[in-house]
Write a protein that binds this DNA or RNA. Structure first.
Length: 477
RNA sequence: GUCCCCGUCGUCUAGAUAGGUCUAGGACACGGGCCUUUCACGCCCGUAACAGGGGUUCAAAUCCCCUCGGGGACGCCA
């Protein structure tokens, strides 16, 4: 077989969404696996709804996901010359015809045909004496492709197998608007052919477009590509995934703190599998991905599993990489200091196993450079700041730490234990009140570990602040 | 309504192509336990599915048919 050439062809009428991203990924992987070319084409023939802003956003999302393309982006809006050339051909060989009818007339006619269980065909225009086939005043013509009255159109889908349509079930369809611009079904065929696309890999919502496109291929005497229709992604209610199911754009997942590899991995595994394996590097995917293990049925998007995968990727990421990923969230004045602070990088290591997103990672990290917590967890305050003995223990601990010279885990642990015994409090309760004092939360890495990393100065400052806070806000019974 | 596609645990799936090795495997989630200064991580255990009905066959999740269910398409959108 000659070189594999595939394409991803989004229309810039919105951000790149999860479904589109998966289609792009499948195309990308198929190209890379077969040493072929991955082409990007922007389908902006609907000038009204397309925008430059969305185009930029789509490219940005693709780059973020690591979907680098080999050719393009081509813009259909710049290729009207080519479409005109093929349009001429279609008109010349009479598979396309001009129709002088208004949108209203056309839709009324289709409705009346529907009542008779008939499809819209040129033959019925003629039989009904509509006079739409020759010029009329004040009406701009559309160009319509004529579909056969009988027979079948069959093609072999790489993922779904043989699919057959009856010609009698097909409407003749418009391929050129009365405002002199071409329509989707026509331009895809022309472009895919012109760009030498060998495999059309797209969502299975395009299955019913395929017979129409095959008719155009045949009419234009163009070679047919292979078709592979991949199942769609559904929401939890089994409806087509949309905004009401929550975040659907790639951009949104980026903002929420997902790693591109995690999203990529999750999306490939949705509808494709390789035995029991769940986690794949991109190189592995390039080696293993092929269309034959793509499933036939629609998949429900499961945010929980994506979250799990993201956590897995965060856990196995290098600290430096994670630092780079969250740097935008860190206050500017802290960035360079932290970059060369080896304790901060150690802390990243402690915190990353309890962070499922980069956002969480940042939240778990920020106590390190913030002088004291913005607020204390209210439940924690009730349990650990509101007991007199714990408060007294905390004060005693403060004094003990104040004279401690080597601020290491071992010494800290001894000090905590001594105070706990002395004041007859549980070590865990003392640890919790210190944790709350330092991080503002009841959850963090090991208390001795973080104190050691934080160092004496910053620890004492936070403890002092907490003690004062308690004195100011709490009245013991 | 018409046409097309799909149907294994709640979810993603292994199982197909070569019907027996499937008392149906893995993963997420969920439940329990261990570890433990909190929360995680990690480890161990558990709950849970072949949509239904007919065939074919010594034998069917795997092949055939029907029913039911879900989705998609029927635009001068892509």
């Amino acid at each position: 077989m000659s070189e594999v050439r595939v394409r991803f062809a989004p229309s810039p009428t919105g951000y790149l969404h999860i479904g589109g991203a998966r289609t792009a990924i499948f195309n990308y992987l198929y190209a890379r696996h077969h040493n072929g070319k991955f082409i990007l084409r922007i389908e902006d023939t609907d000038i009204e709804r397309s925008s430059k802003e969305y185009t930029r956003a789509i490219l940005r999302s693709m780059q973020w996901l690591g979907l680098d393309w080999d050719e393009g982006p081509y813009f259909q809006s710049q290729r009207f010359d080519i479409y005109n050339k093929y349009l001429k051909k279609l008109l010349e060989n009479k598979t396309g015809y001009r129709c002088w009818c208004s949108p209203e007339e056309l839709s009324d006619f289709k409705n009346s045909l529907r009542e008779k269980k008939l499809k819209f065909k040129k033959k019925y225009i003629e039989e009904t004496n509509l006079h739409w086939l020759s010029e009329r005043e004040n009406i701009y013509p559309v160009v319509i492709v004529e579909t056969p009255l009988e027979g079948t159109i069959t093609y072999k889908d790489i993922v779904k197998g043989n699919i057959t349509f009856s010609a009698k079930d097909l409407n003749d369809f418009i391929i050129w608007r009365s405002n002199d611009t071409p329509i989707y079904n026509f331009v895809v065929v022309v472009d895919d052919s012109d760009m030498g696309i060998t495999h059309v890999i797209r969502g299975d919502d395009h299955i019913s477009n395929t017979p129409k496109q095959i008719i155009i291929y045949n009419a234009l005497k163009l070679e047919l590509p292979y078709f592979a229709h991949i199942p769609m992604i559904l929401g939890p209610d089994k409806k087509r995934l949309s905004k009401r199911h929550g975040a659907t754009s790639v951009e949104a997942y980026k903002q929420q703190g997902y790693l591109p590899e995690a999203l990529f991995n999750y999306l490939v595994r949705l509808g494709w599998s390789y035995g029991d394996q769940e986690i794949f590097s991109k190189d592995e995917l390039v080696g293993k991905f092929d269309l034959d293990n793509v499933g036939k049925s629609a998949a429900i998007f499961n945010p929980e599993k994506l979250l799990w995968l993201n956590a897995e990727y965060i856990k196995s990421s290098h600290h430096a990489r994670l630092f780079d990923e969250i740097i935008d969230r860190i206050p500017e004045e802290e960035r360079s200091k932290l970059r060369s602070d080896s304790n901060f990088f150690k802390l990243i290591g402690l915190v990353k196993i309890r962070s499922r997103t980069l956002r969480e990672l940042y939240e778990n990290l920020k106590f390190y450079f913030e002088p004291y917590p913005n607020e204390y967890d209210s439940k924690g305050v009730r349990k650990f700041f509101s007991k007199k003995t714990l408060y007294e223990a905390l004060r005693a601990l403060y004094k003990k730490l104040d004279v401690m010279i080597h601020f290491n885990e071992e010494n800290l642990e001894n000090a905590f234990n001594e105070i706990a015994t002395e004041y007859n409090v549980k070590l865990r309760d003392l640890a919790q009140s210190v944790r709350l004092a330092i991080t503002g939360k009841t959850v963090s890495p090991g208390i001795f570990e973080i104190i050691e990393l934080l160092g004496k100065l910053r620890t004492m400052r936070k403890l002092q602040y907490a003690i004062q806070w308690i004195e100011k806000h709490i009245t013991f019974e």
